[in-house]
Design a protein around this nucleic acid. Structure first.
Lengths: 181, 181
DNA sequence: AAGATAAAGTTCGATGCTAAAGACTACACA
DNA sequence: TGTGTAGTCTTTAGCATCGAACTTTATCTT
């Protein structure tokens, strides 16, 4: 008898096991959190497949996204990108190096402050972003195909409220998410 | 004038910009997907803080989770863990090495098949898992504090349906998520 | 039985990330 | 003006991961 079955257990089954191991578990909460985490993983795998087809990695995609998201003229300081992506400045330096070599971005010194650097996107970079978006939107539509318009709106609404809680409330020293003011 | 404001734009604002850059965007779908992705990132940051306090990294935590999740006698083959976590077998070898040195897991040859290895969890590993769960459940309750019981159930239900779509349907060659059986 | 094939895990070389130290610029204050 | 101080990016060393080749064991085929 093998030490474990191969396939990943279904979500509800997994929660049930957790509860056996940890009595005080709130199964309702745990279900939401685990579903979120599993969904994000699956989505990233799916995106990764499409990115690979276009010769991009997740790293490059993240940076292109930030540059487009900021709107015209599509410029950011490396430090800003790093902060938003949760990376160190060192990692950004190297990412920009690689993306520069691929012709996806530009890098120049900020004329107003020579210590600063301005990263911009090239036409090719913008084109790549668009191609990925087209592929991604197909996948996302497939993902949500079982939900009605009303359900989609509701889901977006509920998630936004969670996001607001975690983004607007700075956690205190013990990590608690408190007052939103 | 700086090339970009420091703080990350709010979700709705971000979606609006995306739509300016990509006309055909379904804002409803995009809102769900982006909220999901942003939530997962924030959650991982929060977990990371608690893990660091206990001297654990995300890598160790993932492995402990899989071992507990499988139930007694808490044993798995390295390859199974690797598959479920989306890692290569090589990475698992090194993770087990490190966790062995920390006394979190055990490693022995499978008596039924000498090529195979059985990874088990130690009492200390189980205790660490429990400590993390206690911390995590506090954070998760805080995260969901604005939702009523009904809303929590509904959210869990909607997410489960998405998960079912992406986990049960193998994507075809073009990456589409189709028929569920 | 004997050899081919398949499967599991480890080893090896290369890549990308982090933390820490370093270099450079701008600004504050004497 | 000169010096200190803070902020931004780059460099360096160490570590985790991946892809690929290799070792060992079990199973299939004849």
């Amino acid at each position: 008898m093998p030490p474990a079955p191969e396939p990943q257990p279904a979500l509800d089954e997994q929660i049930a096991i957790y509860q056996r191991e940890y009595r005080d578990l709130d199964t309702q909460v745990e279900k939401v959190v685990n579903a979120l985490s599993r969904l994000d993983r699956r989505m990233n795998v799916a995106y990764g497949r499409q990115l690979a087809l276009l010769g991009l990695g997740h790293a490059e995609w993240e940076v292109l996204k930030e540059l487009v998201m900021v709107g015209a003229p599509y410029q950011l300081w490396p430090g800003t990108i790093a902060k938003r992506l949760g990376l160190t400045p060192a990692a950004m330096t190297h990412r920009i190096d690689r993306m520069l070599a691929q012709g996806l971005v530009t890098r120049e010194r900020d004329p107003e402050n020579r210590v600063r650097v301005i990263v911009g996107i090239t036409d090719e970079g913008r084109e790549k972003w668009l191609q990925v978006m087209r592929k991604a939107s197909v996948f996302e539509e497939d993902l949500l195909q079982d939900l009605t318009k009303v359900e989609r709106t509701l889901l977006g609404e509920l998630l936004t409220r969670l996001l607001r809680r975690v983004e607007d409330a700075q956690p205190d020293a013990s990590g608690r998410l408190t007052d939103l003011d």
